[in-house]
Amino acid sequence: MTLTYDLHIHSCLSPCGDHDMTPGNIIGMSMLKGLDVIAVTDHNSCGNCEAAMKIGKDYGITVIPGMELTTLEEVHVVCLFADIKKAMAWDAFVYKQLMEVKNNEEIFGTQLLYNAEDEVIGKKDKLLINAANISFDRVYDLVDSYGGIMIPAHIDKQANSLLSNLGFVPPESKFHIVELKDFSNLHRLQKENPYLLECKVLSDSDAHYLNDISEKGYTLTADSKTPEAVIKSLKNTLSGKEYKNAGVFKKRSL
């Protein structure tokens, strides 16, 4: 089936996320925008995913538990998981890898945790926008060991992206999906980085404000509307490396 999506949305757990980005409001706005599948992806935390998933269930919106990881090199990577248990195990692992710097709410903003009644139930102490002690080259295998997938975020942006911070796609990379802010950058980036020719490409909003959540438009296909089915569908692509081994790179003329 064809599903409209926005797989990169921040809640008010991200210090830079607007206060209106409660799980309930995110679901409500996603309904208005006609989205079938969304992912709540806060900086280095999956803390509001469960609430969003529960509320989403009541309103027929599929919520994939996720996170926007900040690697050691400050490259942002969207990580998506098939179920909340594995996402929370990953969340606990990443939290330990964050620097021991407390959030200063006045400067960075609040980091609020919500329940499925859309009420504040707590806050995160450590500053979530900091880098985790996980280098980019380790992300694929680590996330994979939690059953998840990695998607280098907004690779066409000038800050905190794979291409802006590392300058190129590391040749040993295994990821096979990338996210663009703007699809019109695709051909230029593919020309500069042939690795991307073999990647699935998504475009998400990276919304920090309700009105920035994607308008119905971009779609993906999956067997059903569950997080498991969507993750399975996203995984169901050969990685760049496998393509190389299969000789696909050789056949293609650029």
Partner: peptide, 8 residues
């Protein structure tokens, strides 16, 4: 250039 280092 790494904000996490500059921060501390």
């Amino acid at each position: 250039d790494l904000l996490s280092i500059a921060m501390s």
